[in-house]
Design a protein around this nucleic acid. Structure first.
Length: 369
DNA sequence: ATTATTTGACCGGC
DNA sequence: GCCGGTCAAATAAT
């Protein structure tokens, strides 16, 4: 608790320092022959720092409100989630589904808990094919033509659903208006070691993220248009708890990485006091989340804040920028080394099955669409 | 042999 | 009964 508070403060300070640092460097190099896009990127970076700092402050504000018991907030959410998804039958046959009351019960519970919804919408230049590589391994389990939609909707679940009981799913829907845009709706947070890996990296590969695979829904918007200026397009995160209508988190920030944050943000384990670690988890993910494929194969990737150096120290190519984006959005935003500690024991759900840390490259190579 | 995708069927909610 | 979400057998890929 106390640590988490300090930790957030550290993040806050570092974000501000970082923003200032980037601004300073930008100023120093104001006349350097960088492409306008690059400067855009840097500016975006600065704005991002401020946005995040504000986010932290706002979050703290809302937390203290909730601690005053005037409103239900994330704490209430946590109490809504007493069940462990792990207890669900790993491979429910249809008969099981129909006859297993427990499952049904959970399912229903999950439904009601799904009342609260996260929505993240982001437009950014991915430079990749399609909207994929969000750092997780997904297995397609269905496709459906949707009424009124031009393109079918694809359904994915976490590859490690059976092995690790990770119930995260996502739906991918190509936009009608703009076929280069994909709407991705995430449901359920990752409880697998990969989800955790995204967080836990590099030095403590066996630390695990929290488990609660409860209801959440995040929507990303991905585009593959070739325009760097779209990077950092404002995205909004909205968190609704419909059940009690308690919590709404409207805020905006300009970094794609927040998609990952939002995606990983709902670390509401019932067993742990969450108010502080809630935000912490955002930033853990934010800091260490490997959003691009290349990171998957770099288990010892040192997450440091050198990425921007690359921007300054050499002319940028398109691929450079892509790389910067990937690293920037996943690691740089709050890169300070001391954040690596952040996976303190309190964040680890004791129930997590620590048995499967073996990722084969094949597994990691899963692609979407 | 193992893992992933495709796709028609099934199911529950509305 | 329609529709969206999921299952699971068949098939493809590795």
């Amino acid at each position: 608790m106390e640590n988490a508070g300090r930790w957030e403060q550290n993040i806050l300070i570092n974000e501000l320092v970082q923003g200032m640092e980037v601004a300073r460097r930008l100023k120093a190099d104001l006349n350097a022959p960088y492409p306008a896009d690059t400067k855009d990127l840097l500016l975006q970076r600065i704005l991002s720092s401020y946005e995040k700092a504000l986010l932290i402050l706002r979050w703290n504000a809302s937390t203290s409100e909730s601690q005053n018991m005037t409103q239900a907030t994330a704490t209430a959410t946590a109490t809504l989630l007493p069940e462990s998804p792990i207890s669900i039958s790993a491979s429910p046959l249809r008969e099981d589904r129909d006859h297993n009351q427990e499952f049904k019960h959970d399912s229903k519970k999950r439904k009601t808990m799904d009342k609260w919804v996260d929505q993240v919408r982001v437009s950014f230049e991915s430079g990749l094919e399609g909207p994929h590589e969000d750092g997780y391994n997904w297995r397609k389990y269905g496709q459906k033509d949707i009424l009124g939609a031009k393109y079918p909707r694809s359904y994915y679940r976490c590859t490690f659903r059976n092995t690790q009981g990770c119930w995260a799913t996502k739906q991918v829907q190509r936009s009608d208006e703009d076929p280069t845009i994909f709407d991705i709706t995430y449901k359920g947070r990752h409880t697998c070691s990969q989800g955790n890996k995204a967080v836990a990296q590099p030095k403590s590969p066996d630390k695990h993220d929290k488990l609660q695979c409860h209801s959440n829904e995040i929507q990303h918007r991905h585009t593959s248009e070739e325009s760097l200026t779209t990077f950092g397009t404002i995205m909004t995160v909205k968190r609704d708890m419909v059940g009690n209508g308690e919590m709404e988190y409207p805020f905006t920030f300009p970094s794609t990485s927040f998609g990952s944050i939002a995606q990983e943000s709902h670390s509401l384990i019932p067993s742990a006091p969450e108010n502080d670690s809630f935000l912490s988890s955002h930033f853990q993910t934010h800091l260490l989340y490997p959003s691009m494929q290349e990171f998957k194969y770099l288990p010892s990737m040192p997450f440091q804040m050198n990425e921007l150096d690359g921007i300054y120290n050499r002319p940028l190519s398109e691929s450079d920028i892509t790389e910067i984006i990937s690293t920037n959005t996943s690691t740089t935003n709050s890169p300070v080394p001391e954040f690596n500690f952040s996976l303190d024991p309190v964040d680890i759900d004791p129930n997590f099955p620590m048995n499967s840390l073996d990722f084969s490259p094949r597994e990691l190579n899963n692609k979407n669409m």
